[in-house]
Computed example of a mutant assay.
Amino acid sequence: MTPIGIVLALTTALCWAIVPLIYRRNMGDLSFPEVNAIRSFGFVGAMVLLVLFQGTGMPPALRGPHFLLLLAATLLGNVFGDVLYLSSIAKIGVGRAVAITSTYPLVVTVLSALWLGERITLPIAVGTVSVVAGLNLLRKGNDADRGHLPEAKRGFLLALATALCWGLSIPVTRWLLLETDLSSTDLNFWRSLVFFPSVWALWLLRCRLGYHRPERILALRGRSWLALNGAGALALALGGTLLALALQQAPASVVTPITASSPLISTLLAISFLGETSTRRQWVGIALVVVGSAVISF
């Protein structure tokens, strides 16, 4: 196992864990598709700076099937997956949605074995199951039943679709890194250019359908604009580049369960800095995530 791949995966999880705390203070009554559109500026801007810092000039162009796969990975991981996630929450509540969608590391493990030819050892399998179980225990309380049975079924299917979208995007990203000459920064740069028009097109469509009012974004305070774009730079630019680096150093079946521990870090940060409390069940979840990540790492 490559130690640097483990460190990069943990650093990615830290980036992803800080962002929800920024959202909590700056989202107001905005929906996530609106936040996604705003933070796209931070994503693109930070990636331009990273490419300039890399000093290798304009990244090589992606053409044909490689571009289509990058488009698919971006839409699945950062656009459709997140929209499906929010829809599943609306149907069945946060607790159930998080429980079902947190199974995406299992999807990555299976696909990594079948498509990428990665060897799934017993520690990887046991550690992945431990992380998934721990994430389920970390969710906040139990949600009451929402709506009628058909709504619950739709919510369950939406949550499964979310896990599938997230689980598909990571093996595709690793395959692109292995099959092209792109660096992790180059790949994430092209992802940002795909992400930007995609989220704004989705926002415009939702405005046309009556889900959003354009003035809501314009009315957002300047400080909140900066904070949300900072979150985009942290989660999508830095976190995405670190994830790609980790996938260059270690198998996707190892990297994913470790990066999926970001809810654990978010919980610990909320306890330390926001004064939140945790139940005994959540502390058991924390222990399972820590043990699972440790088992995978060795």
Rank of each mutant, 00 (worst) to 15 (best):
Thr2Gln: 15
Ile4Met: 14
Ile6Tyr: 07
Val7Ile: 15
Thr11Lys: 02
Ala13Tyr: 03
Cys15Met: 08
Trp16Val: 00
Ala17Asp: 00
Ala17Trp: 07
Asn26Ala: 08
Ala37Leu: 04
Phe41Leu: 11
Phe41Glu: 04
Gly42Val: 01
Gly42Gln: 00
Val44Pro: 03
Ala46Asn: 02
Met47Asp: 03
Val48Asp: 02
Val48Thr: 05
Leu49Gln: 06
Leu50Thr: 08
Leu52Gly: 08
Phe53Tyr: 10
Phe53Glu: 10
Gly55Leu: 11
Thr56His: 15
Met58Phe: 13
Pro65Gly: 13
Pro65His: 15
Ala72Trp: 01
Ala73Phe: 02
Thr74Glu: 07
Leu75Glu: 06
Leu76Pro: 03
Phe80Tyr: 11
Tyr85Ala: 09
Leu86Asn: 14
Ile89His: 05
Ile89Asp: 00
Lys91Leu: 13
Ile92His: 11
Ile92Val: 12
Val94Leu: 15
Thr103Asn: 09
Pro105Tyr: 00
Leu106Met: 06
Val108His: 01
Thr109Glu: 00
Val110Glu: 02
Ser112Asp: 01
Ala113Trp: 15
Trp115Ile: 14
Trp115Glu: 02
Leu116Thr: 09
Glu118Gln: 13
Arg119Ser: 14
Ile120Asp: 01
Thr121Gln: 11
Thr121Pro: 06
Leu122Arg: 12
Val126Cys: 10
Ala133Ile: 08
Leu135Cys: 13
Asn136Pro: 07
Leu138Gln: 08
Leu138Met: 12
Leu138Asn: 08
Arg139Asp: 13
Arg139His: 14
Asp145Phe: 14
Arg146Pro: 10
Gly147Ser: 04
His148Met: 13
Leu149Arg: 15
Leu149Glu: 10
Pro150Met: 11
Lys153Ile: 15
Lys153Gln: 11
Gly155Leu: 02
Gly155Glu: 02
Phe156Gly: 12
Leu157Cys: 10
Ala159Gln: 05
Leu160Phe: 09
Ala163Ile: 03
Ala163Lys: 09
Gly167Pro: 02
Ser169Gly: 04
Ser169Tyr: 00
Ile170Thr: 09
Pro171Phe: 00
Val172Trp: 03
Thr173Glu: 07
Thr173Met: 05
Thr173Trp: 03
Thr173Asp: 08
Arg174Ala: 07
Trp175Met: 10
Leu178Ile: 12
Glu179Tyr: 07
Leu182Asn: 06
Ser183Lys: 01
Ser184Met: 05
Ser184Glu: 11
Thr185Ala: 09
Asp186Glu: 08
Leu187Lys: 01
Trp190Thr: 04
Ser192Arg: 00
Val194Glu: 03
Val194Asp: 02
Phe196Ile: 08
Pro197Lys: 11
Leu204Arg: 15
Arg208Ile: 04
Gly210Thr: 07
Arg213Phe: 06
Ile217His: 09
Ala227Gly: 07
Leu228Trp: 04
Gly230His: 04
Gly230Leu: 04
Gly230Pro: 06
Leu234Thr: 03
Leu236His: 07
Ala237Asp: 04
Leu238Glu: 00
Leu238Thr: 05
Gly239Tyr: 00
Leu243Asp: 05
Leu245Ser: 12
Leu247Cys: 01
Ala250Gln: 10
Ala250Ser: 11
Ser253Tyr: 11
Thr256Cys: 07
Ala260Lys: 10
Ser262Asn: 15
Ser266Ile: 04
Leu268Thr: 03
Ala270Phe: 06
Glu276Ile: 01
Glu276Thr: 03
Arg280Leu: 07
Arg280Gly: 05
Arg280Asp: 00
Gln282Val: 00
Gln282Lys: 12
Trp283Leu: 10
Val284Ala: 12
Val284Glu: 12
Ala287Cys: 11
Leu288Met: 09
Val291Ala: 15
